[in-house]
Structure formats: C-alpha cells, structure tokens
Design a protein around this nucleic acid. Structure first.
Length: 276
DNA sequence: AGGGTGTCCTGGAGGC
DNA sequence: TGCCTCCAGGACACCC
C-alpha cells in the first residue's frame, strides 16, 4: 500500500530510466482504472513526445512531458511500475504499457485491485502545482508544514487528530499507517480532538511525522502486502512499525496491549497507556 | 461548513 | 477442499 515514502521510492527508482525518453506508444489492457482509459486520447496527445521529468507530489507521480499536457499517476492500493524489455511477458494485472524510444523498452503498470489513477492533466506553469492538484496542502518536509501552521489550521476543529492529519489538504502524503505511527511516536491518542491539541503536541506531531517518513524513505518504503519497488526489491520498513497491525500485541515501550479502533471507516492502532 | 459514511476493486484470510 | 463473508486502503461524492 503505497504511501508517501513508497511513492518517493518509486519516483527515485524510475526517474533516471525515463527522463529524456520519447513515448513511442501507450497501450491499455483494461477499459478503466478509476477513470476510463482511452488509448487514442493518450496517443494523440503524447506519441513521440519527450518525458522531461518524473516528479512526486503527495502520493501522485507526475510525468512531465513536453507540450501543454502531463500525465498524473496514482498507485492506489496495489499499483506498481516497472521497466522491462518489450518482449517480456505481460503479468496478469498489467494494465498499462508505455513503449519508450523505439519501443525497445517498456514502462508497465500493474495494479491487481485497479484502485490507481492514470489521467491527462494540464501542465503547470513555473513551479506551481498543476491545477488538478491545487487542493493539496504542504508536503510534510516543506517549511510551511510546522507547528504554527498545524496549530492555526486546527483551531475550532472537532475531528479526531488521526483523521485530520490524513486529510491531504492539511498535509499530504500521510496515510493510514504513518498516521498511526506518527501519533504513537508523538504520544498522542488518535482519538484526541484536533482542536484541543496544545502547541507542544503540534510540535511533537510535526517532528515525529517527519522523522518517521524520512526513515521510511531511507528504508525504501514499507512493504506490508503489496508494495514492491520497481527493481523488485522489497521495502523493509514494516519491521520498524510500533503499532500498525499489532492489535493485542505488547507495546514495545510499556507492554500494554495495542488497541485497534475504527475511525472514519479506517483502522487505527495505538497504545492506550503511551498515547494520551 | 464541517465531519462522517459509502463507493470503487479484488486478493487473501478466516470461518464453517 | 470449497464456498462464503469480510477486510484492506486513498480519493472523492454525497449526506446530515
């Protein structure tokens, strides 16, 4: 399940292989992912155009392509990209192929649950976000995401803190796993109302979420079930998870059994003793 | 308007 | 073994 560190890992692995490459042909092997996939539209727009960069914003990959249109890719739950030789046999759930250069190499997208996205968006001006992503809040590593910002943004809000930090318009890229893990490290219960957080809590939360995301990136992303980096290597960050997926197991700090609850339809894990 | 729920999807786990 | 049900998750539409 790709969250920010996984998407960052994919971006870093893929970019050197596709920057500067020409798109020879785009093929779809499924009528739709989250949206309809129309081969003609993509080929008319991108055939023989050069990929100038692959960047990450939030959990999106953006294929920057010469011209006025770009491609937005989201890995959903189970999406992955890999680079293969053109004659390599297609895997069961491979839905997209970008033949590069003279067609000798292909970038393939595999997604068993088809929760991913692949769509054409308008290119952005300068360093701005493309319009399709204008709703996104700051990245966790940007200076704008700090305790002052989080404290101000959360006043008079009544949502549980867990749901608040998972809102990409507040701060992007913190999914279910890292939300639980950040709160554990910050010593904050996921049930706390965000508006009741003190400034010191905001400071701890910003700091801990950064530390955890950074170490996950350095570890090459979390592999729980589905995630694989494009070179086939597995991330190993799951070995460092303190609470996620550890229902009824002993807290590493205090031995209290980890609790699992449901918030906004998503499972949260926390230590009822360490997190207040 | 803010907060919560339902929907999309399918593989895997667990129950009987 | 085989069938059934449930669950996982991000983004977004929708409801109260």
């Amino acid at each position: 399940m790709p969250e920010l560190p996984e998407v960052e890992t994919v971006q870093r692995a893929l970019a050197p292989h596709i920057d500067g490459q020409l798109i020879h042909k785009i093929s779809f092997f499924t009528p739709r992912l989250r949206q309809e996939l129309k081969e003609d539209d993509f080929n008319q727009t991108f055939q023989n155009k050069k990929i100038t960069a692959l960047i990450r914003r939030s959990k999106y990959l953006i294929f920057q392509i010469e011209g006025t249109q770009w491609i937005l890719s989201h890995l959903g739950m189970t999406g992955s990209w890999r680079i293969v030789a053109k004659d390599e046999k297609r895997l069961k759930h491979e839905h997209i192929s970008l033949a590069l250069n003279e067609g000798d190499q292909e970038l393939r997208y595999c997604d068993p649950r088809r929760f991913g996205e692949f769509r054409i968006i308008k290119a952005a001006q300068d360093d701005q976000d493309p319009q399709a992503l204008s709703h996104l809040g700051p990245e966790p590593f940007w200076n704008e995401y700090n305790a002052t910002y989080l404290f101000a943004a959360s006043r008079k809000k009544t949502k549980p803190v867990k749901n608040f930090i998972m809102d990409p318009s507040v701060v992007c890229g913190i999914g279910n796993i890292y939300a639980s893990e950040s709160l554990f490290r910050a010593g904050i219960s996921p049930l706390r109302k965000i508006g009741k957080l003190r400034r010191v809590d905001c400071e701890a939360l910003v700091k801990q979420s950064r530390i955890i995301l950074q170490s996950a990136i350095e570890a090459g992303g979390t592999t729980i079930i589905d995630f694989q980096a494009p070179d086939g290597s597995e991330g190993w960050f799951h070995r460092q998870l303190n609470v996620y997926g550890r229902k009824d197991e002993a807290c590493f700090k205090c031995q209290t059994p980890i609790k699992k609850i449901t918030q906004a339809g998503r499972s949260s894990f926390y230590c009822p003793r360490c997190q207040k």
